[in-house]
């Protein structure tokens, strides 16, 4: 999706996933979710259970990183 409303979506690799879960002391189930068929992750070939790293560019806050787990539609 190429629109100014859609921030950059990437799939996290295993190492980074582990680091992330440790940093926030969470399980993947506790993370916010994104649907498998979401237009934002179209073309990324994301599977259920993958963690998507979203690099947002916020108004006041600036660059901000958010994470979502891919779940079934």
């Amino acid at each position: 999706m190429d629109n100014e409303l859609v921030p950059k979506h990437e799939i996290l690799d295993e190492k980074e996933v582990e680091k992330l879960l440790q940093l926030y002391n969470v399980t993947p189930r506790q993370l916010p979710k994104i649907k498998e068929g979401d237009p934002g992750i179209m073309g990324l070939d994301a599977k259920i259970g993958d963690i998507i790293k979203i690099t947002r560019n916020e108004l006041v806050v600036g660059r901000n990183i958010y994470y979502r787990v891919v779940v079934r539609d």
Binding site: E4, L5, P7, G40
Partner: peptide, 28 residues
């Protein structure tokens, strides 16, 4: 220009661009 097309209908944005865009349009 597909990059800059914008609507103020939150549901329509969500359906065409996904959750993250939906979240952004709610904030905006």
């Amino acid at each position: 220009d597909k990059k800059r097309i914008i609507s103020n209908d939150i549901r329509q944005i969500y359906e065409t661009f996904g959750v993250e865009a939906g979240r952004n349009i709610i904030v905006n």
